[in-house]
Each structure stands twice: as structure tokens, then as C-alpha cells.
């Protein structure tokens, strides 16, 4: 479905990615892992054309994503939940959900059933929501575009434990439904049980790729330990 091959990305003169390889097959939940600053978010920015890759190929089904502007990439079927619970602060919850919606499986009712708080706060401005609610809104907004591949960048980072559980419950539901998902997250205890595959980045390179079961303590200590 998504195939990222040997991409190299620069921020101005400084190189951030030195050869990232990543693959997500239909129906798979893939975890992109690595310590802070190893290029996870840059990889995602490159996929979405926000920080275009200078070398390598990124294909999604039949689309060559490197040739498309960001909005066409989204239209091709990628949905992004950006890092840091990004929604549109001065618009209501409903507006956030509906404006960018595209027809499909996910409807307003289903999203509000998934996150009942969004229904309760439907007329409030997004900036008056708590951090956890904003994250739910960001996920809901991405779902409403009915992406074939959902990309979650640190969706549970910096949230209260109760809220994290609610978000993990949603992510497990995506897994049950066979929603193809690319997951960036650092909490191994949550990620490993549900991921079909893990890809680990180290200093802008893909250094490990395999099933979670094969992720032994040596690999963990080497690439994921703090």
C-alpha cells in the first residue's frame, strides 16, 4: 500500500534522513519507532510532502507521492493526525470535523460514538477543549476524511493516563476493523501487542524491521532504550 524507499530529506543544508525504508500493507498496523530526534516525524512530513524528500521514492498504491502537493496526497487516501494535537482552535468542534470530511465508512455519528466527548462539546471552540479532547478531535478530523491509511504521530504523547487509555482503545478498534495504520509511538507496552510490524529508525536510517515478537531485548536496548 505505502512504500517508502531510501528517502533522504534535508532541512535546509542539514540532512535529517539518510535512507529510510518503510512499508505498510493493506490492513496492517505498522509501528514506526526510534528515540527522539531519529527522524520519525521527518519521515512522516516527507510522506505528506510537507518537508519534501530530496532522494528516494514514496509510493502509495499507484500514486507517486513525491510528485503530488500535500492536498493531493491527502486526497489519494492518507489521513494525518499530526504531532501535538493540532486542530483549528477558532472553529467549533463540529466545524473541525465536518469541513474537511469526505464520504465513506466514518461518519459524524460514528466518530461521536467513538469519542462521546466530541458530541458533548460539539458547539465549543476547539481551543477551549482540554489537551486530550483536542487529540480526540484531531483523530476524529482525520477519520472524517476516511483515509485508507491513517497516520498517527505521537497520538498519546503528553496526555493524562485516562485519556491515553481512551485513545489506545480507539487505536485497538482501528486494528480490529482492519484500518491500515502507521503508528508513531514510544510506549512499547501498548504498541507491541497490537502492531503487525515494527520499523525502527536510528539517526535517519531504517535499522530494523520485523515482527514485534522478534524485537528482543538486545534490539530494544540498542535502538529504543534511553
Amino acid at each position: 500500500m505505502l512504500k517508502v524507499a531510501d528517502i533522504e530529506t534535508f532541512y535546509g543544508p542539514s540532512q535529517a534522513l539518510f535512507g529510510v525504508n518503510l512499508e505498510v500493507n493493506a490492513g496492517e498496523m505498522v509501528a514506526l519507532m526510534g528515540r527522539n530526534g531519529m527522524g520519525k516525524t521527518t519521515t512522516i512530513r516527507s510522506i505528506f510532502g510537507l518537508t519534501p524528500a530530496n532522494r528516494g521514492t514514496i509510493t502509495f498504491e499507484s500514486h507517486d507521492l513525491r510528485r503530488l502537493p500535500a492536498y493531493r496526497i491527502a486526497k489519494a487516501g492518507l489521513g494525518l493526525v499530526p504531532e501535538g494535537r493540532r486542530c483549528f482552535p477558532n472553529l467549533s468542534v463540529r466545524e473541525n470535523l465536518l469541513v474537511t470530511a469526505r464520504p465513506g465508512e466514518w461518519t459524524l455519528q460514528k466518530v461521536e460514538l467513538l469519542f462521546p466527548r466530541l458530541e458533548e462539546r460539539r458547539l465549543q471552540m476547539a481551543k477551549t477543549l482540554s489537551g486530550g479532547e483536542q487529540q480526540m478531535l484531531a483523530i476524529g478530523r482525520a477519520l472524517m476524511t476516511n483515509p485508507r491509511l491513517l497516520v498517527l504521530d505521537e497520538a498519546t504523547e503528553g496526555l493524562a493516563p485516562v485519556i491515553r487509555q481512551e485513545i489506545w482503545r480507539a487505536i485497538r478498534l482501528f486494528k480490529e476493523q482492519g484500518q491500515s495504520t502507521l503508528l508513531v509511538d514510544k510506549s512499547l507496552s501498548e504498541v507491541l501487542p497490537i502492531a503487525d510490524r515494527c520499523t525502527i529508525l536510528e539517526k535517519g536510517r531504517t535499522v530494523w524491521d520485523g515482527k514485534p515478537a522478534a524485537l528482543d531485548s538486545a534490539v530494544r536496548d540498542r535502538y529504543l532504550g534511553v
Partner: peptide, 16 residues
């Protein structure tokens, strides 16, 4: 309004 607040975020949701 979304385009004014953050056009990149609007684009990643599929609207130019």
C-alpha cells in the same frame, strides 16, 4: 478560516 489559520493543516486534510 482554516486556510487563514493554517493552510498546511488544511492541505493535509485534503483541501487545497
Amino acid at each position: 478560516t482554516m486556510a487563514r489559520l493554517n493552510d498546511v493543516r488544511l492541505a493535509t486534510a485534503g483541501i487545497s
